[in-house]
Amino acid sequence: MNKHARIYVAGHRGLAGSAIVRALEQGGYRNLLLRTHAELDLTSQAAVESFFHEERPEYVFLAAAKVGGIHANSAYPAEFIRDNLAIQTNVIHAAWKAGTRKLQFLGSSCIYPKLAPQPMPESCLLTGPLEPTNEWYAVAKIAGIKMCQAYRQQYGFDAISLMPTNLYGPGDNFNLENSHVLPALIRKFHEAKLRKEPQVVMWGTGTPRREFLHVDDLGAAAVFLMQRYSDDAFVNVGVGEDVTIRELGEIVKTVVGYEGEVVQDLTKPDGTPRKLLDVSKLHALGWRARIDLREGIEQTYRWFLEAGAGARA
């Protein structure tokens, strides 16, 4: 990408999108096209086509999506499949139609079967049933991958797809109703510390294993792959290492400085038993994650404290 290229980051205020913006700015890219939801509703086909017709971005990072944890996916299945299908369909089609040189679509590791081999290679997509607690989001993301492949095959559109693992970091969602596990734990332990509560309750058995990628590593990988990768096949983006949810809780507990007891609520769902990406393809391309989990959680907690009430909305 030329340093002066017109680059549109869809979802630039979100966790992934804001990290991509930081990575681009650090790389010297200054001609960034950024629109808030109030300025551009990506679920509106007419609005999206008008934006692309007027602005003609040369490169597009499609990081906009409706996201959430187990509770949100279970409570709002229609919104998760409808909004995500609309966003990606509108942006991919409008980008191709407007002559965008290259588009990058961000998916999610939840696209893989619930009982996929571990670590999960890209080849295991569509080889088994999805995890029921997030299938609506997963189906939408699978459709996005296939749309990128279809537009490449039929129109020669240079559209690539990345599948990030669980992301965390500055700008995360700490709302206990719809956040993912790591920010939810940071907030839970922080508030329990302030209130001097004797225990913190964590969902499930604590035995599921998860991989966590700092969002600034994701931003660096996204820019790296936009510059150096062009292929029909999508690429896993992760660390290649995982921890149990219980182990994650212990790290957060230590970082926050909470001194009470941790209790597991066995009536709550665990979700997928394990989610670890096979990142051998990414490593072979020349990129590896750099931010250690403990270091990343410490940085995220500092951001949470500095953000104050804004992080707890």
Rank of each mutant, 00 (worst) to 15 (best):
I251W: 12
S44M: 09
G206T: 03
L106I: 14
R152C: 03
K146R: 11
E298N: 09
A10F: 15
Y151P: 01
E191W: 00
V255M: 12
G296P: 07
L115V: 05
L213S: 08
M226W: 01
D231M: 04
E79F: 13
I92W: 06
M147C: 05
T36Q: 02
L34R: 03
I70Y: 08
I291Y: 03
D265L: 14
K97H: 13
P113N: 07
A221I: 06
T267Q: 07
D265N: 13
M120Y: 10
D242E: 14
Q227M: 07
L15D: 12
H71E: 10
G171N: 01
S123A: 15
V237C: 13
V200T: 09
P77K: 02
I245T: 10
K275C: 05
L115P: 03
K114H: 06
L213F: 04
V256A: 14
D172G: 00
R209S: 01
K253Q: 15
L176T: 04
I160H: 02
A72M: 06
A98D: 01
G128A: 11
L162Q: 04
S18R: 00
P269M: 12
S230T: 07
P129V: 13
E191Y: 04
E177F: 04
K196G: 12
K141E: 08
I111G: 06
A159Q: 08
A47P: 04
D41C: 10
W287K: 00
I81C: 11
D231Q: 15
A233D: 15
A63T: 06
A233C: 10
M226C: 03
G271P: 08
E25C: 06
A159S: 07
I245V: 14
F189E: 04
E295L: 07
G240Y: 03
N84C: 14
T207S: 11
G204S: 04
L33P: 14
V239S: 06
F304M: 00
R22V: 07
S18C: 04
D41L: 09
G99H: 11
G28Y: 04
G271C: 06
D217C: 02
F157W: 01
R152P: 03
N134P: 02
L277M: 08
L176K: 05
A289H: 13
W136G: 03
H93P: 01
H283P: 00
L34N: 01
R290F: 03
Q154E: 11
I245M: 15
W303Q: 02
S123R: 11
E306R: 00
L34S: 01
F234N: 03
I291G: 05
L282S: 06
H283Q: 05
I291N: 05
D232I: 07
E135Q: 11
A192V: 06
E25A: 08
